[in-house]
Every structure is written in C-alpha cells, then in structure tokens.
Computed example of a mutant assay.
Amino acid sequence: MEQRVLGRTGRKVSVIGLGTWQLGAGWGDVEREDAVKVLDAAAESGVTFFDTADVYGDGRSEQIIGEWLADHPDAGITVATKMGRRLPQVPENYTLANFREWTDRSRRNLGKDTLDLVQLHCPPTPVYSTDEVFDGLDQLVEDGAIRNYGVSVETAEEALTAIARPNLASVQIIFNPFRLKPLEEVFPAAQEAGVGIIVRVPLASGLLSGKFSRSTQFAENDHRNYNRDGSAFDVGETFSGVDYEKGLDAVAEFQKLVPEGLTTAQAALAWIVSQSGVTTVIPGARNADQARANAAAAQGVGKLGSEFDDGVRRIYDEFFREAVHPRW
C-alpha cells in the first residue's frame, strides 16, 4: 500500500489507516476476539497506522492495541492516540499536569515508553489559541513521553489556528464526499506548513457504505442512535452532521458514480485518498472483512476520474452545502 509522510512526524504511514473507536465503544458491542481479528486483518492488508483515544471504552481500545503490539513487535505500526476528554470540556483542564496524567495512562495502556503521536481530542475552541497548552505539549516531547503531537478538530477554523503552531505535526478532521469544506483552505495550509492531514469519519458513520436504509436500526449504545441530535457530543461526528434521510438520498446519487470493481465505501475512500494534502484516512471496521475491504480501497484511486470528482461536488452542492458548509 502507498505510504505517505505524516507531517512533521517524518514517519511514513499507509494511506488507508484504521480508526479504532469501534473497538472500545460507541458503535455497539465488539468482542475482544473480533477486535484482534480486525487488527490482524488491517496489518496483513498493509495498514501501518492505527488511531485510537484514551476515552474509547475508557481505555479498552488502547489496551487491545497495546496487547496486539506486544504480540507483533515488528509490525511497523504507528499509533496515534488522543487526550483531553476525560474531564469536563473547559479550557482550564488543558494543563501540563493533566497532560502528564493522561499520557502516562495511555503509555501504560499501549505498553509504550514513548507515544508516537498524541492529539488533543477536539478541545474547546479557545485551547487552540492558548500558548501554555502548546508549551505543555512541547514539554512532553522534551520529557520523552511523546514523540509528536497534533490536534483533532471539529471546524476548519480550528484547524487553521492549529496549523499556525510551529511544532504541530498533524491535524485530524472530518472530510468525506458530504463534508468538503476542508478542501478550500485547510488542506492547502497544511501542505504549505508541512502538517499531516488525518481524515476521520470518511464514510459519514457508515452512510457511504451504501448499506443503510430508512428501516435500519442501530443498537442502543451506538452513537448513530443516541447522538443524532448532538446530545452526547458534536453532532458533526454522527453521519457527518447531515440529515439521515437526506443522506440516504445523496448516497443513492453517489452510487451512480461508483465505477465497476469498487464498492460504494471503497469509492468514497479512494476519492478521499486522491485529494491533495491528505496523508491518511482512518475508516473503522467491526470485523476482519471490513478491514480488508477498506484497505483494498487504496487500489481504487486510479479508477476515479474528473467525472467522478465533478459528481461528488454536484451532490454536495445539491444536498449538503447550505446546511453543512457554514457550520464546520
């Protein structure tokens, strides 16, 4: 699989990575044995980048990855985790003391003396403009607790503020055919600054798998059930913030663009990878087959042309621009 340098980390990672929120919580239950099979399948398919967070299953995702890494010490996996959501979301909680506590916990969970990449986990907007926060992150690097740091953001404006920080390695942002705003300023600014772009929610929480319908039911502990109104966290994390019914209509149009030999999900992932500035995309997988199918999307980039790209933009303008573009 193609490898790209992840911003200022200097490390090469696969263009298709693996998001592991679902291995901890938030997407219904995934048994530990199945979670390990997902990691196995991803690595066997050429994936070299795992993304997790300290709050995914209260550390369960990190722990499963840590156990897997111990069993596969030569797998060449870069692991990115996140911190900041273990306490109420107020800027005052983003302190060096808390950073040390959170990273120490993640180091134990992952079995690593030094974490590859730690990202602030969608903190309150003022955090991005607080010098002391980034001084604290620089101190963690100096201490040897982390090698590099980045941010995970909700909005394009937050991303641009963070990219201006001189030691920022990466930005993680929502981007997919239903969320195009990062193309305008974020990706060009990141490229110019040498900052990596990690794309999350690439399939709009599964909408772009093409497998959902108006009768689809989600588990009670699946965020696609309990967070449609944004009551648990930013609604943009669930179905990319788009109306579910409208999303289904848009998927039907999107499927008309998909070339032979690719699934709906693979076409979406391949299109994301083809965008200038994107380093890696991190779809989740609940089973090994999904992990393998996602990884195979990397081979689909050459099957997409300008007509596909034009179609994506037409669908966005018709179905989502008015509601989505100004908000995120």
Rank of each mutant, 00 (worst) to 15 (best):
Q3S: 12
R4N: 04
L18P: 02
L18E: 00
G19W: 08
T20N: 03
W21L: 14
G24T: 01
G26R: 03
G26L: 08
G26V: 01
E31N: 00
R32E: 15
D34H: 10
A42D: 08
G46T: 06
V47D: 10
F49K: 00
F50C: 02
F50M: 04
T52Y: 10
Y56T: 05
G59W: 06
S61L: 06
E62G: 01
E62S: 03
W68C: 01
G76W: 03
T81E: 11
M83D: 02
R85F: 02
V90W: 00
Y94A: 00
Y94W: 13
L96G: 01
N98T: 04
T103M: 01
R105S: 13
R108P: 09
N109H: 13
L110F: 05
K112N: 12
D113Q: 12
Q119T: 13
C122A: 14
P126T: 12
S129A: 13
T130R: 14
D131A: 15
V133N: 14
D135Y: 11
D135I: 14
G136P: 09
G144T: 04
V153N: 11
E157V: 10
L160M: 05
Q172P: 02
I173Y: 15
I174L: 06
P177C: 07
P182H: 02
P182G: 07
V186W: 07
F187R: 03
A189D: 01
A190M: 08
R200D: 04
P202I: 11
S205I: 00
S205D: 05
S205H: 07
G206Y: 08
G210H: 06
F212S: 09
A219L: 11
N221C: 07
D222T: 10
R224I: 08
R228F: 00
G230W: 15
A232E: 15
F233L: 11
F233S: 13
D234E: 02
V235I: 11
L248V: 09
E253C: 09
L257K: 06
V258G: 02
L262C: 03
A270W: 03
P283C: 00
R286W: 00
N294C: 12
A295S: 08
A297M: 11
A298W: 14
L304S: 11
S306A: 15
D309S: 13
G311E: 06
F319N: 03
P326G: 15
